[in-house]
Each structure stands twice: as C-alpha cells, then as structure tokens.
C-alpha cells in the first residue's frame, strides 16, 4: 500500500532561501540579530520566557537564523536550535552559530529540554509532518511555547494554516494542555504555552471556565462602555442627517437584492393583470359590436323577407305568375 498523496503540498528547505527572509518583515528590516528591531523583540520574548517558565535548557524548533536562541543565551539559558534551511543556519550570527544545526522537525529530538519553543513553523509543514513534529516535541519536553498564525493564508509557504483551537486539540491528544496562568501574548496573540499534565475533565473545565468568566465580563463591560461613548458622541454631534446618510449608503447599487426583485415581480404582475383586463374589455367591446352587426343584419333580412312575402301575397304577383305559368313550364 502506497502512502496517499498529501492533501496539501509539502515545502522544502529550498523554499526558505535568503530571499525568503529578505521580505520576511518589511517593517522590521532584515531578519537578523544585527537588526535592532528583531534583536529587541526577541530579547523581550526571552525575558518573558525566563520570567514565566524559568528554564535552564531550551530548544527552538524551526529556529531560522537563531535570533531567539541567541536572545535566550543572552538571558542565561542554555539554548539550542535547529532549522531545515541551510541558508538560514549559515546566515546566523557567528556568536550563536555553533548552537544551531540543520535538521527536520519531523525527526525525533535527542535529549530533553525544560522548554521547547516552536514559533510560526508548523503552518509551513504538510499536515502529516506537522503531527510528527508535535510528537517529537512532546517527547523531548514537558513545556512547549507554541504559535501558529490561524488566519494568514496569503503567504505562499503557509500550506497548513489551522485555527488555534485545532492546534490546542492536537496537543491535548498528547496530554499537553494550555497553561491558562501564563499570558503568552508577548509572542503573538495566538501563542500558547502547553504543559504536560494529568488533568481530570473537572479540573480542565474549571481551568478554562476560570479564564472564560473574566473575559466575558470584560466583553460586556466594553460593550457597555462603547454604547455610552456612542451616545455621548451623538449628543455632541447632533442627530445624523438621515437623507444624506441614506443617499451615501445606496449611492451605487446593483440590481440584486431580493426585496427589490420581489417588488419588481409584483410590478410586472400588475402590468400583466392590467393587460389581461384590457384585453377582456376589448374583446367584450368587439363582441358587442359583432352582436349589434348581427342583429342589424337579421333585422334587414327580416325586412327583406317581409317585403318578399308581401310581394308574393300581392295581386299583381299572383296574376303575373298565372300569366307566365305556361311559358315557365315549357322551359322546365
């Protein structure tokens, strides 16, 4: 049995050449330790990792040019990293170069680490490979800092974009659950710290519920505040000019909405009904005229018949017939 072709395409090392990193982030400049923007960003990330998880050892899976590894080292963590792109590894800063290696995330990881980080990597991998990568990471640590953008479909190498809940479910299959006490948004809004845990459903529910409640309250409070703000804004601005607002909204329209088409159908139907009524009136009129012609003709016919009868009854006729009788007979 052959392995079925993957549902999504696979990306390879050559898809991540130096050119890939050139346009990695047009805002931040070149994706390298030397660039202040990226160095500061990852030093900040490292500070938070140290602050929240206090690891002694760390491994960055898909480390690219090893900026995060270098930042963790700078904060006293014994960090390592690997990446499938030889270009990336060879483009790393000399200070961190020997902590990095070329390797695939699908391969089992040697050794154990206090923390494994995996930032924006798995969405680049074909789904079955991504599962292998999760397996490998979960075997090498009890704590994973993970991020994968749930909605960036535009980047060509994002062949495996998934909602955050989906990634969380895959980690949960391996006994890893969200650390709800750690705010991981310092890395990305969708980043999660997963930790191995023996959790009864009750504990899990409690953990999520405990986070959900304040969030729901926050949403309600914010909605209320927004409404208040809108009302105060309206008071200051006065009521909206209805006519002009209406006009702007409907200034350019297609003939496509159902309400319009329904009104149009009613309009056409009315035209047809009036047309039928008009035809009926016309036919009635023509019938009336025909009946009158018929009556007149019949009257005329009756008159002629009366005339004829009178003629036949007249003395002159009878005498005339009697006189001409012999000759007519002869002709017959």
């Amino acid at each position: 049995m052959s392995i079925p072709e993957a549902a999504t395409p696979e990306t390879t090392s050559s898809d991540y050449s130096a050119r890939y990193y050139l346009h990695y982030d047009p805002v931040g400049g070149e994706y390298a330790w030397e660039t202040e923007h990226w160095r500061n960003f990852f030093l900040g990330v490292a500070d938070r990792i140290v602050g929240a998880l206090a690891p002694t050892t760390a491994l960055d899976v898909g480390c690219a040019r090893g900026i995060l590894v270098q930042a963790l080292v700078a904060r006293g963590v014994d960090a390592r990293g690997f990446d499938i792109s030889e270009d990336a590894i060879s483009g790393a800063h000399p200070d961190v170069r020997d902590r990095l290696r070329v390797g695939s995330a699908t391969e089992p990881i040697e050794g154990r680490y206090d923390v494994v980080t995996c930032c924006e990597v798995l969405e680049h991998m074909e789904p079955r490979d991504a599962q292998k990568a999760i397996d490998a990471m979960c075997a090498a640590t009890d704590t994973v800092l993970f991020s994968s953008c749930p909605n960036d479909y535009e980047e060509s190498t994002h062949v495996n974009t998934n909602p955050t809940a989906q990634w969380a479910a895959w980690f949960a299959e391996r006994g890893f659950f969200r650390r709800v006490d750690v705010d991981s948004t310092f890395l990305a809004p969708w980043a999660i710290v997963f930790q191995r845990a023996e959790l009864a459903p009750r504990a899990l529910v409690e953990r999520y519920e405990a986070r959900m409640e304040p969030m729901r309250n926050e949403v309600i409070e914010k909605r209320r505040a927004l409404l208040d703000l809108q009302r105060r804004y309206d008071e200051v601005e006065g009521p909206a000019d209805e006519a002009s607002e209406y006009d702007t909204i409907r200034a350019e329209v297609e003939i496509d909405d159902d309400a319009l088409l329904a009104r149009h159908a009613a309009l056409s139907a009315r035209d047809h009904v009036i047309g039928l009524e008009a035809s009926q009136v016309r036919l009635q009129r023509e019938l009336e005229a025909a009946r009158k012609r018929n009556r007149d003709l019949r009257d005329a016919l009756d008159d002629k018949e009366d005339e004829l009868e009178k003629l036949h009854a007249s003395k002159a006729w009878r005498v005339g017939r009697a006189v001409t009788y012999p000759t007519r007979r002869g002709r017959d």
Partner: peptide, 25 residues
Amino acid sequence: GDRLVLVYFREKFNYSRKVNFGVLR
C-alpha cells in the same frame, strides 16, 4: 454629486426594465 443614485444594469437592453428598476430604486 450626492443626489446621485447609480443603478448598474447588466442585462440585455430593455428600456422598460431599466426604467422600472430605476423607479423601484
């Protein structure tokens, strides 16, 4: 200007239909 309502008619030419949709809009 802002007094305009522009209705795009993308069907085969039909004067009556154009006017009808214009009035309905």
